[in-house]
Nucleic acid binder design. Structure first.
Lengths: 295, 295
DNA sequence: TATTGGTCATAGACGACATCTATAGCTCCT
DNA sequence: AGGAGCTATAGATGTCGTCTATGACCAATA
C-alpha cells in the first residue's frame, strides 16, 4: 500500500486524452489504437477508484477529479518534455558546457585555435577555462570541476587516463644582445656562462631541463626565475639572458627576429602534451566531441 | 522525429536509480530485478545518445547530463506523487468538494442534518451551497457549477436525472388571531374569505396550489406575496393572514402552538423532493457518497 | 594473496500484458 | 433512415519488459 505508483506511461495517455478531448485523437497522437487508449484510461480510473472522464458521443471531458489530476500531470508533462528537449540539445551540442583545465600558456598557444573552432561550430556550448599548475589541474579533474585537462606528459596516476596529443619542443632562445651566438653551436658548459632565465620551480619543463643538465654533471642555476611564459619571452627580448621556452610559443618572435634559437650540441628532449580525463568516467558529449576535434 | 517522447515508465526507473545511487536498490524499490533496471537505464541513454550514469563498483552516480535530466525528472516525479496522493485523498473523501444547489428552505429544513453528518464524517470535503429557484438550480447544474440539486418534483428534462427522495406536505397555517378556525374544517370558498399569504410567484408550491384552486373553479389571489419561507411563517404568526407553507418546515411552530394547521375539506397534494443530477454525467466521489447518505 | 560480497552488464528464455482487430452501442447530424 | 462520429468490450496476438543465469569488475576483507 505504501507506494501506489501507477505506470507512468498511463499518465502520458491520460495527458493526451485530456488535452485533445478525445480518446481517438489521443490514440492517433500516440500511434496507438482507440481501444488501447480507452483501456489505459480505464486502468487509471480503476487504480484511483475515481472517474476521470465524462464520455460523450463527441469525445471526452474531464470530471472534477480528472481536472485536478490533469493540473498536476500537465505540469509534469511539461517538465518531461523540456527535459527531453534539453537532452536533445545536449546531444546536438546546442547546449551544454565544456570545462577545460590547463596552463595559461597551453591555452593561449596550443588550445586556442581548437577552442575557437569548437565555439564557432557549437556556439551554444559554454566554455569554461580553469588554469592552474599540473597538480592543480589534476585536483580539478578529480573534484569534477573540469571535464578535461591539458597538461605536459608524463602523468602517472591510475585514476587518470591520458592521451598524448601533440609534441612540443623546448629550446633556449636569446634576443639581440646575444647575436654573437646566432650561428654557433654551444655546449652545455658554454651555455652556462650566460645568464639563464627559467620558468618557476614547480613547472614540468623546468624539472625536465634541470634533470637533463644534471645527468651530464652540470648544475643548472637560473639567474632569473619567472612565473609566466610571457615574462620568459620578454626577459629574453630585453637581453637579460637566455630563456628556456617552448619553441612553438615563440614562433612569432623567431619569425620577426626579435628572438633567435640557440643550438646546443646535445639534443633537448621533446615534451608531449596530453589530454587528461578521469579513467572510467564518462565524458560529457561536449567534452568527447572536443577531444575528437583536438584529435 | 517530431515527438521523441520516451516511455515515461523509464523516467520512474531513472528517478529511483538516481535517487538511491544504485541500480540494485532502485530495483528493490520498484519490485524489479537489477538487470531490468540496468536495461531500462540503457534504453534511456540510447534514446538520448548520452551517458546518464557513471557506473562504479559501489553504485552509480549521475553524469552532468544525467544530473540535468534529474533536475527535471525529480520535479516531475514530485508532481506525479502529489497527484496520486490527491487522488487517494479524493477517493477517501479526505479532500474534495461537494457542491449542492437548492432552495434555502430545503437546505435549512430538509438537507441540513445530512450536510451536518456528512461534514462530520468527512471534514476534509468542503461543502458549497448555492441557493436559487428551481430553474436557477437546473442552470447551475448544466453549467457544472454544482454536482447535485435538491428541488421539488416533478422535473422533466431529458438531460437531468432525478431521484425522488422525500415527501413533504404543504398546508395552510394561521396564528393566534384566527383561533376560531382551530378545530373546524374549511371549504375552499370559506378559506378565500381570509387573507392569504403565498410564496413568490415563480415557486413550484405556489404554482401547484394555484392550479388546484383553479381546477375547482376558485381563483387564488394572495393578500401578501413574500420571498422566503421565514417570512411566510412570520406573517402568519403575526396574524396577518393564512400562510401556505410546507408542514415539515413549521413543525416547531406547530409544536409550540404559535401556529396551527387549518384543515380543508379537500386533500392537498403532497410534494416530492428530488435529488437532481446530470444524466450520464459521472458524479464526484463526494457527491455520490452524499447521495447514498441521503438515501 | 585468495576470498567474499558487493557492484553493474550481458545473453537468452519466458510470459505478462499492452496492443491489436473486430464488433457493438451510443449520439448527433444529414 | 442512414451515416459518421464517438467510446466500450471481448478475445486473439505478439511485442517487449522482465526474469534467470552468468560474467566481469572492484573493494574490503581474511
Amino acid at each position: 500500500m505504501s507506494s501506489m505508483t501507477n505506470n507512468y506511461e498511463l499518465y502520458k495517455v491520460f495527458y493526451l486524452a485530456a488535452k485533445t478531448g478525445s480518446l481517438s485523437q489521443a490514440a492517433k497522437a500516440l500511434y496507438l489504437t482507440q481501444p488501447s487508449v480507452s483501456h489505459a484510461i480505464k486502468q487509471l480510473e480503476d487504480s484511483f477508484g475515481l472517474v476521470l472522464f465524462h464520455r460523450t458521443s463527441k469525445g471526452v471531458t474531464l470530471t472534477q477529479e480528472g481536472a485536478l489530476l490533469y493540473s498536476y500531470i500537465e505540469q509534469s508533462h511539461i517538465l518531461i518534455t523540456r527535459a527531453e528537449e534539453k537532452m536533445a540539445a545536449l546531444k546536438n551540442l546546442d547546449d551544454g558546457e565544456l570545462r577545460v583545465g590547463g596552463s595559461d600558456s597551453l591555452f593561449k598557444h596550443y588550445l586556442l585555435p581548437y577552442l575557437e573552432s569548437f565555439h564557432r561550430q557549437y556556439p551554444g556550448v559554454r566554455i569554461h577555462l580553469n588554469h592552474g599548475t599540473t597538480p592543480e589541474v589534476i585536483a580539478f579533474l578529480k573534484e569534477g570541476r573540469i571535464d578535461l585537462g591539458v597538461v605536459r606528459m608524463p602523468i602517472v596516476d591510475p585514476q587518470l587516463q591520458v592521451r598524448e596529443s601533440f609534441q612540443l619542443q623546448d629550446c633556449f632562445v636569446a634576443g639581440e644582445g646575444y647575436s654573437e651566438l646566432k650561428n654557433t653551436e654551444l655546449s652545455m658548459e658554454e651555455l652556462l656562462h650566460y645568464p639563464i632565465i627559467l620558468f618557476s620551480r614547480n613547472s614540468r619543463a623546468r624539472m625536465a631541463i634541470t634533470e637533463l643538465f644534471q645527468s651530464y654533471g652540470y648544475p643548472l642555476k637560473p639567474e632569473f626565475e619567472v612565473g609566466s611564459v610571457d615574462l620568459l619571452i620578454e626577459f629574453a627580448r630585453k637581453g637579460l639572458g637566455i630563456s628556456y621556452v617552448t619553441r612553438e610559443f615563440v614562433s612569432r618572435e623567431l619569425e620577426d627576429g626579435s628572438l633567435f634559437e640557440i643550438r646546443l650540441d646535445v639534443p633537448l628532449p621533446p615534451s608531449q602534451v596530453g589530454l587528461m580525463t578521469m579513467r572510467n568516467m564518462p565524458l560529457t558529449n561536449a567534452a568527447s566531441r572536443f577531444m575528437e576535434m583536438v584529435g
